[in-house]
Design a protein around this nucleic acid. Structure first.
Length: 435
RNA sequence: GCGCUCGUAGUGAAGUUGGCCUAUCACGCCUCCCUGUCACGGAGGAGAUCGCCGGUUCGAAUCCGGUCGGGCGCGCCA
């Protein structure tokens, strides 16, 4: 018999149907016994009226996989307006061990309980509220793809297994590769720039690996990045606008289409403006120093508290959850950045609710200048890690820029989760490699 | 990596100025009762060498040292 999903039960009133799913809840009242059966579309209530049928569930724990056939009866007292009566049930996969956590109850997201959250991830991901996080995440990624494709970006995949380390900066993971040293990619940086030479506009959604011993609420060792790169741009503003438009589009859609889900997480009200407010790093240092008395004017980057402060300012004074911090000082720049005449870098950070979610720089695209900037920081441009990269410049790259955008952080801040790991199915950090 | 903080049944918590702890509660689990539950309700029961090692003491969940692990903040972060 054809399987009917939970969401379609109510449209089969008067019919005998078969459903299958996981035993989600037993509420045994004696002569009146209710079961909740979970499938991918939701939960169906079953009224078990036969003692023999109920007896098949003796010793069966939550999570037991069942198939049930019964008559759909409309009843306003049933969740969803209908339930199954007169069921006969078959145990497809018995579960006799008591699950270590309660799947049908709210799962604690208190920071001190996060270890248990990830330790029992296999089971708590069956919790309906927990699932919402990852359904929201899946849709946000889907919206990002739709937006970028509508702007004629081509999706690419680039290798995560690389040779000797190149970019420097963040620590890289090294591993044995048939006797030679390989590293895990910290970003698709070089490859996406190379691909500008083919498609002008490219993006990749993939994993990046960083061996930084960071123990914070915003770091993972394996993270999901959206990398965008676009060529033939007039100026830095054009890239910032593209990234801002994409972000606003995705946020607005998720708020429109998951309104109830976001409310169930007490997600903050979404505040967007036509133009994302912008402040230079120097301006933020000055404003922050004036407001708090802590002098940050000699910092090359924003300190975490400044990120929170400027976000608060943008939300309260300007009505925007998004804010750009622009014009990083020259000493913060890397060899592939485009430096400006005023001793700053054409590089902006996009902050969302107080957290850096994207870096949005302009690249140097002139071959000679690129080689010069590389040699200035002691790079041997004949190494494999650089010579192929440089070919793209030697044989013609237009002015280009893009962004590295943290998907995990975007989801975290959209929902209002305290730790980026909560927005990740199976987070990887300094101590956790499983599950 | 540094600082602060936490570690008690399967889960979440209380107890932590040493003795009233033979360790308390809630949920879950087991047995039974219950005909409209939806965090069902009721009665009873099982389940913890209080992270680990060592020390102080007549006596340690509680104090001290070490160790492992978690969390938060900072640093680091193309």
């Amino acid at each position: 018999m054809k399987r009917i999903l939970a969401r379609d039960v109510v449209s089969n009133v008067g019919q005998s149907i078969t459903i299958s799913g996981w035993l989600h809840k037993k509420r045994l009242l004696g002569g009146l016994n209710f079961l909740s059966i979970r499938d991918r579309s939701g939960v169906t209530q079953i009224l078990v009226d036969s003692k023999d049928e109920l007896e098949k569930l003796r010793g069966m724990q939550i999570g037991t996989v069942l198939e049930l056939t019964g008559m759909v009866v409309a009843d306003s007292r049933a969740p969803g307006g209908a339930e199954l009566h007169g069921v006969s049930l078959t145990v497809l996969s018995p579960v006799t061990d008591e699950p270590p956590i309660e799947i049908d109850k709210p799962i604690s997201h208190k920071s001190e309980n996060l270890d248990s959250l990830f330790e029992y991830r296999i089971l708590n991901i069956r919790n309906l509220q927990e699932q919402k996080i990852f359904r929201i995440r899946a849709d946000m990624v889907h919206y990002i793809r739709e937006f970028l494709r509508s702007q004629e970006f081509v999706e690419i995949d680039t290798p995560k297994l690389l040779g000797a380390p190149t970019e420097g900066g963040a620590e890289v993971f090294k591993l044995d590769y048939f006797g030679q040293v390989a590293t895990l990619a910290q970003s698709p940086q070089f490859f996406k720039q190379i691909m500008v030479g083919a498609f002008e506009r490219v993006f990749e959604i993939g994993h990046s690996y960083r061996a930084e011993p960071s123990a914070t609420t915003r770091h993972l060792t394996e993270l999901t990045m959206l990398d965008i790169e676009m060529g033939f741009i007039k100026n830095h503003d054009e890239v910032k606008k593209m990234v801002a438009d994409m972000t606003k589009n995705v946020l607005q859609r998720i708020y429109d289409e998951h309104t109830d889900d976001l409310r169930s997480f007490n997600a903050p009200e979404l505040k967007l403006t036509d133009d994302v407010p912008q402040f230079t790093i120097a301006e933020i240092h000055e404003m922050y120093t004036k407001a708090t008395g802590t002098d940050t004017t000699s910092e090359k980057d924003l300190i975490p508290d400044e990120e929170r402060w400027i976000a608060e300012h943008a939300r309260k004074q300007l009505g925007s959850d998004l804010v750009y911090a622009t014009d990083f000082p020259r000493e913060a720049g890397k060899f592939y950045h485009k430096f400006k005449d005023d001793n700053t870098v054409a590089w902006a950070d996009l902050l969302f609710r107080g957290l850096e979610i994207a870096t949005v720089p302009l690249r140097e695209n002139n071959y000679e200048k690129m080689v010069e900037q590389m040699q200035a920081v002691g790079i041997d441009v004949t190494l494999d890690g650089f010579k192929y990269y440089l070919q793209a410049f030697k044989y013609g790259l237009p002015v280009h820029g893009g962004c590295g955008f943290g998907i995990d952080r975007l989801v975290q801040k959209t929902i209002g989760l305290g730790n980026v790991k909560e927005a990740t199915l199976f987070p990887r950090d300094i101590n956790r490699l499983a599950p």
